[in-house]
Computed example of a mutant assay.
Amino acid sequence: MPPLVRFLLVHAAIGFVIAFVFVGGFLLADIGGMRTLMLASDIGFVAMALFTFMTGLTFSSVQMGVAVMLLGEPEDNQPPSSRWLRRIWEAAREWLAPPLERVPASIKKNR
C-alpha cells in the first residue's frame, strides 16, 4: 500500500476512534434526551448507527485535514510525529507560561 494512502487511512481511523468516544460520551450524558429517544424508538439502533457513522465521517475528515496541514517541510531529521508533538508542546508551554514570562524583554528592563 502506498505510504500516503496508509497515512490517510491511519488518520481516518484515529478520527473514527475519537468519534466513538465522543458519541459514547454524548449518549452517556443524554444530551437533549437523545439516548432516551433512541432507546424508546423501534429504529433506535439505526439512528445510533447513523449518528455514529456521520460523526465518525466528520471527525475523520477533520483529523486527516489536520494531519495533512501539519506535514509541512521537514526541518530536521526527526520523524514527523515528533515534530508536531514538539510544536504542540511548545505552544502549550507558551500559553501556560506565567504572565511575567510572556512579557517581552524590553518591557522587563523598564520595570
Rank of each mutant, 00 (worst) to 15 (best):
M1L: 05
M1C: 04
P2T: 04
P3W: 11
F7M: 06
L9A: 07
V10G: 02
V10I: 14
V10R: 14
V10H: 07
A12I: 05
A13T: 12
A13V: 15
A13P: 02
I14F: 13
G15W: 08
F16P: 01
V17S: 09
I18Y: 12
V21Y: 02
V23G: 05
G24Y: 04
G25W: 00
F26T: 01
L27Y: 02
G32T: 01
G33C: 01
M34H: 03
M34Y: 05
R35Q: 09
T36S: 11
L37Q: 06
L37W: 09
S41L: 03
S41T: 02
S41G: 14
S41F: 01
I43F: 13
I43D: 10
F45T: 06
F45L: 10
F45I: 02
V46Y: 05
V46G: 00
F51G: 00
F51Q: 01
T52E: 07
F53P: 03
M54L: 15
T55Y: 02
T58E: 00
F59H: 08
S60D: 01
S60M: 13
V62W: 08
V62A: 15
Q63T: 07
M64R: 09
M64N: 05
V66Q: 09
V66F: 14
V66W: 11
A67W: 05
A67M: 05
V68F: 12
V68D: 06
L70M: 15
L71T: 13
G72S: 13
E73V: 10
P74T: 03
E75R: 06
D76Y: 01
Q78F: 04
P79I: 06
S81W: 15
S82G: 04
W84N: 12
R86A: 15
R86P: 03
R86M: 12
R87N: 12
R87S: 10
I88H: 08
A91E: 08
A91Q: 11
A91T: 09
R93D: 14
W95T: 11
L96F: 15
L96I: 07
P98E: 08
P99M: 05
E101A: 13
E101T: 02
E101M: 11
R102E: 08
V103D: 00
P104Y: 03
P104C: 04
A105K: 12
A105D: 11
S106Q: 13
S106I: 10
I107N: 04
I107E: 13
N110V: 14
R111H: 10
R111Y: 10
